[in-house]
Amino acid sequence: MKKRANVFLWAGGILSGLMLCIIILGYFWTPYDPTAMDPKAKFCAPSLNHLLGTDNFGRDIFSRVVDGAGTSFFIALCVVAIGCLAGILIGSLCGYYGGLPDLILTRVCDSITAFPAFLLALVIVTVAGPGTENIILALGILFIPSFARIVRSEFARCRELNYIKSAKLMGAGGMRIMFRHILPNTFPVLLSAVTIGFNNAVLSEASMSFLGIGIQPPYASLGSMLSDSQSFLHSAPWYALGTGGAIVLLILGFSLLSEGLQLKGQR
């Protein structure tokens, strides 16, 4: 096992890099307007004009996939950012200081995880109404406990180590110790948590949009497109395949990347 090239890191890096490039390009340019309809081009099979074919309104599926992947990506990014930042804050304070606040916050996190994640997200969206911001909020809150737990356990482990004790003896303040000395040591664990979290966020968004409570039409996300494509499985199989394929590639890239990063950390 020594010195073998880290295939996962490479494959994951290239795949995610490629997807990322397409997504970024999609923010500025798509071959067609993702919502423009063409009654003459309904259900076109994939061709050079329409790389992934067209849907029931004659909209170009490739453009919509790129656009939808961008939306999904943006939501996942925000969700992970909220979950990660709040998780770090809660986790570090709990892990470092311990005591009653730690007990309470940990139990709160536990109780959030005790709910089926999806049910909670559904409740939040039902109360706040559908829309991009509300999905980000709902999923963001759901993602806090997983990050908080990881960070907390790292902090609890590190605070008893000698270098922290000596930092304390030198008179360093709590904030400095937490964020200057301990936090960087949690990065390897955090990094793989972020990539896994990102995957989960993409899938959660897709599932919510699949149920029709996510992105509202005519704007697309990968999940809502997959949901729409159900009705046309017989007549336009490329619709479901193109959309599903994009989700697979996006997830696969980041899964491989996180696997590769973990391997790298082990060496």
Binding site: M1, F8, L233, H234, P237, A240, L241, G244, G245, V248, I251, L252, S255, L256, E259, L263
Partner: peptide
């Protein structure tokens, strides 16, 4: 290594699941 194989399998299962999903209505 086992984990990596697992990851690849999971990805394939996802793909397969998708295809099954497509076939569901016809079968």
């Amino acid at each position: 290594m086992r984990k990596q194989i697992l990851a690849v399998f999971l990805a394939m299962a996802l793909m397969a699941g998708l295809l099954c999903g497509c076939g569901g209505a016809t079968t």
